[in-house]
Amino acid sequence: MKKIIIVLAFIAASAGAYAQAQFAIGIKGGPNFANLNVSDPGATYKARTGWHAGGFVLMKFSKIGIQPEILFSQQGSKIKVQGNDLNANYSYINIPIMVKLYTVAGINLQAGPQFGFLTKAESDYNPVTGEPINSTQDFKNAYKKSDVSLAMGVGWDLPFGLTIDGRYNLGLSDVSDQAAYETKNQVWQISVGYKLIKFGKGN
């Protein structure tokens, strides 16, 4: 009898949780302010402005949400070396898996791992030799094909399905392969999103 009561209580609690749950599918995008953390004593690295765009799925249970995303992201850096102003233009497909802690009025704190996959690495700076070159070239082979970052930020789920996020992606893995110096991604992002499809309660 005790076991039956426990099972019924678990089912009731689960049903209550799902009754309060929100499921949403949406799109998001915005500017990137990307830089590279490179152990290169002969060059100075500054932020490069790019953009990101993609989609997300939100599963929200009371004060906790889980939000996997898939985003195209322009990253890289501006580089000053030997008096030359150069550019490193990299692109990734990123898959962050965010855990969101909701506070009041849809405001939430976010953190989670991000897995990135390199799609482009073009530059007029040679990361293998550390020298400037005369034209923009493909240096994708100088970098690893994948990246792992820690994503942290704050967001606001507004009424009518709108969302706003500010996030910092701290590169944890060295993405250099043939490149001469250890290299890690660093990206600030501001996103505006919209929930296209919603089920359940909540904003």
Rank of each mutant, 00 (worst) to 15 (best):
M1P: 11
V7D: 00
A12D: 07
A17R: 05
Q22D: 14
F23E: 00
A24W: 15
I25T: 09
I25F: 15
I25L: 15
I27T: 04
G30K: 10
A34F: 09
L36M: 11
N37T: 06
N37M: 13
S39Q: 14
D40Q: 01
K46T: 05
T49M: 12
G50V: 09
G50N: 14
A53M: 12
V57S: 00
F61W: 11
I66K: 07
Q74A: 11
S91E: 00
Y92W: 12
Y92C: 00
V99S: 01
L101S: 13
Y102Q: 02
A105L: 14
A105D: 15
N108G: 02
L109C: 08
G112L: 11
F117R: 01
L118N: 02
T129P: 03
Q137Y: 10
D138L: 09
F139V: 02
S146I: 05
D147N: 06
L158D: 10
L162H: 05
G166S: 14
R167S: 08
Y168Q: 00
N169V: 11
G171M: 08
L172D: 07
S173M: 10
V175H: 15
V175Y: 15
D177V: 04
A180T: 08
E182K: 15
K184E: 00
Q186N: 12
W188N: 01
W188L: 06
W188I: 03
I190F: 09
Y194A: 02
L196P: 03
F199H: 06
N203A: 12
